[in-house]
Design a protein around this nucleic acid. Sequence first.
DNA 1: TCATTTGGTAAACGAACGTTTACCAAAAGT
DNA 2: ACTTTTGGTAAACGTTCGTTTACCAAATGA
Lengths: 211, 211
Amino acid sequence: MTDTKEKILMAALRLFAREGYEAVSVSDIAGELGITKGALYKHYKNKRDIFDSIVARMFQVDAERSRQYEVPEEQFDQSPETYEDVSLENIRRFTLAQFVFWTVDDFASHFRKMLTLEQYRSAEMAELYNSCLVAGPVAYMEDIFREMSKKGVLREADPKQLALAYYAPLYLLIGMWDQADDKAALTTLLEGHIARFIQMNAVGTEERKGP
Amino acid sequence: MTDTKEKILMAALRLFAREGYEAVSVSDIAGELGITKGALYKHYKNKRDIFDSIVARMFQVDAERSRQYEVPEEQFDQSPETYEDVSLENIRRFTLAQFVFWTVDDFASHFRKMLTLEQYRSAEMAELYNSCLVAGPVAYMEDIFREMSKKGVLREADPKQLALAYYAPLYLLIGMWDQADDKAALTTLLEGHIARFIQMNAVGTEERKGP
DNA sequence: TCATTTGGTAAACGAACGTTTACCAAAAGT
DNA sequence: ACTTTTGGTAAACGTTCGTTTACCAAATGA
């Protein structure tokens, strides 16, 4: 069965996320499935191959996700007076989806932790960690905020500074998730942060802008 | 010489911070100093003992630091009209000092990275990482902000939400430091963040409060 | 039906691991 | 001056590592 190959990948990911790549032995992975380590080499050519397959899988998952999120296209025919609300609401929903993805989703959550543990081992891992979880998302938000400032949805401000202020709490709360006992409180904090950010930075929360 | 013992500790810390504890061999550590691994056992009883000594050292460094930062006591006899400025300026300086400590300081920087890599291995490491770098600092800022709100230096707001908004960018920038090529830009971003935070949350940046 | 492929076991491989031992030169103590 | 301690080397210990090999039963395919 090719089902075993999948089980190996997930078991390895779970172990890599907790212990780090080097600290996990091939026997450990095989032991998780109740098979011998010899059987493992029928599915992967070596230990590194498992790791590489995990990374490749993440690229695949990410491609599917961005295909899904890109151009929903439905709300662009709104009247100008409600555009900012829709736009901000989109950001809010996107942010919550990001949070859920990196914390609740089994694969993404374990992958994030694995990447956290491997980020200093090589420039490649550092770049991957950075683009997935740090500078990548910040740059993404910066683009969005620059656009929104230009359209008058947000007050004038350095979009890089805005992106930092917006994304950093999300990043920190993701990092707190794994060992938080009250996970609902974290979600509440995140929602509070988003609401606060919109209230302080959106045009139209104090005076409403006419069409 | 007891100087060798210190060199072993620092070399081990440097390696643990890059590779993680399990991925570093005793030979690796000895090799960094140009001695054999046998010699290493004249200074530490085993590999774990080196790790524990590093952690103990951090506690020691931290104790010295908090002794140094606690009760500078010099500015508490200010007139009420300048109190908020002093208070906010203290926070600004404290924040920058924290940032420099966890990024530039050789021991603290490596210790932070090591802790980042070990945080999922045991509850003890998770707690240490959390108290040093995540929930600990947030709770600390929360206390400060609650006090400042009560004294009217800050606008009314949930202090937990304030602490998250204030500390998270610091946390993210610390994490970006290691592999940033333009470190000055990060410092600029941090200073921008602090200035922005004070401007948006301090009472008196729009209307000055009389005595 | 019979050859082949698949997915598994058990054992062995050399290398590397953390640790211990036997030994030694130089420094320190008395 | 002689003993002890200190800080080092080199080699060996038993264990575990990642990987390979020989073998096998069941599924697959012609």
